[in-house]
Design a protein around this nucleic acid. Structure first.
Ligand SMILES: [Mn+2]
Ligand SMILES: [Mn+2]
Ligand SMILES: [Mn+2]
Ligand SMILES: [Mn+2]
Lengths: 218, 218
DNA sequence: ATAAATTTTTAGACAAAACTAAATATTTGT
DNA sequence: ACAAATATTTAGTTTTGTCTAAAAATTTAT
């Protein structure tokens, strides 16, 4: 597979929400930042290669083989993201662009060894699950921290309230996107939470918890 | 620069022995495993871009800018090779093919961080020097171990005598290509050497030393 | 010095991946 | 149900990098 074919397969995979929905030419074009006519050309080719099911005017979906390829690419992309953050001290929001290139390196051994070097991580720096070599993985969902049960941990991926006072509070208390958060205990009385964030134990109010999104895998 | 352009620049650099000799179309074609006519096409383009000096029928050499590019690529290639061996436990002879791909990843930050992660290595797993960010580096030369002065260290890169008994000896004494060897002391009497190899101190005869090639940087 | 051998370039073609403009199919709104 | 709006495909180009075959230049050998 060429780099270009790989990026199309990944786009179709992501647009299908990992559930292999049929997606339209226009959707793919928008995601790939290209023209619909280019997409038509490419999906015809991918169809010939047995990677997608394509019905003119009706849309495109991945074949079993195409899904396998997509998961391999997602695995590679996310492992590289972990590498960049964990080993090279990249920040949360800098890794995507570079991983977008690294994911295309062809060497099964490289990925196996990288996986090992990283300690077989289960999620990437954005909280998204890393498919196993066989293509298995748990789905990730986004929840408000206040709705996460005790014992679960996830990654902080967004805020509901983005007002200056709230962001200032987060900053002052050293809570940032990309941080790993574990829910340790919940107070019955006021719904406040005892959480562990980056190996630090802190106590936050229910209002705070109700404005932070966590990505968790079940 | 495209991946293809980069590989041509590297080929011209290596054929020019790092001293920017003018090289012929046919030499480039052979190294790149392509046709001379393709080389002509490409060097014309590289010439337009100011990366090479090209005179029809006379050959091609790198411009100052082209040399800069070549050194950046060599730096990236060799840093990745170190990474593969040191961090991912690849062996000496497996790294080239993968580094050939990784060298094309575009991210200055990635290379700076990788360099740091590896502890700013000076040589790659083949004993070849790694250019600094500014493009400076020491030249490497290949010498018989018996001719290397005391105190110097290098990497074992080949054998002069490749007979079964000699190779068997090396195997039995755990001496392999890719090993780092430092010359600790030399006996006046018989020319035998005390060397350190992979943190092990051993004593070898002059005959052995006269059949092992070391790559050293001065 | 000239012919033969070799190297290099040119001309013309092709495949991959993109684009624009025009044609056609589908969906939406009345 | 039909016209208008939207989505999609087709047709024809372009760019990049490659190739083969033929022409031209250079080098080598007599
Ligand atoms: Mn990509
Ligand atoms: Mn990610
Ligand atoms: Mn390369
Ligand atoms: Mn090397």
């Amino acid at each position: 597979m060429t780099l270009s074919e790989e990026d199309y397969i990944k786009a179709i995979y992501h647009l299908g929400k990992g559930e292999n929905h049929t997606v339209s030419t226009n959707e793919v074009a928008e995601k790939m930042e290209t023209k619909p006519s280019s997409v038509t050309d490419m999906v015809k080719k991918l169809s010939e290669k047995g990677l997608v099911n394509y019905r003119p005017y009706k849309g495109v979906s991945l074949t079993g083989f195409g899904q396998k390829m997509a998961l391999t690419l997602v695995r590679k992309h996310r492992l590289w993201e972990v590498f960049l953050v964990e080993k090279l001290d990249f920040s949360w929001d800098e890794v995507h662009e570079v991983a977008e290139q690294l994911e295309h390196i062809k060497s099964e051994k490289l990925i196996d060894r990288l996986d090992k070097h990283l300690g077989f991580p289960q999620v990437d720096p954005h909280g998204d699950p890393i498919p196993s070599k066989k293509g298995e993985f748990k789905k990730a969902i986004k929840k408000l921290l206040s709705e996460v049960p005790i014992g679960v941990n996830g990654i902080c991926v967004g805020v509901k309230d983005s007002s200056a006072p709230f962001l200032k509070f987060l900053d002052k208390n050293n809570i940032a996107l990309g941080d790993t958060i574990a829910v340790k205990d919940k107070e019955e009385f006021d719904g406040s939470l005892h959480i562990q964030i980056k190996n630090r134990d802190i106590h936050i109010s229910q209002q705070i918890a109700a404005n932070l999104y966590l990505k968790i895998t079940e």
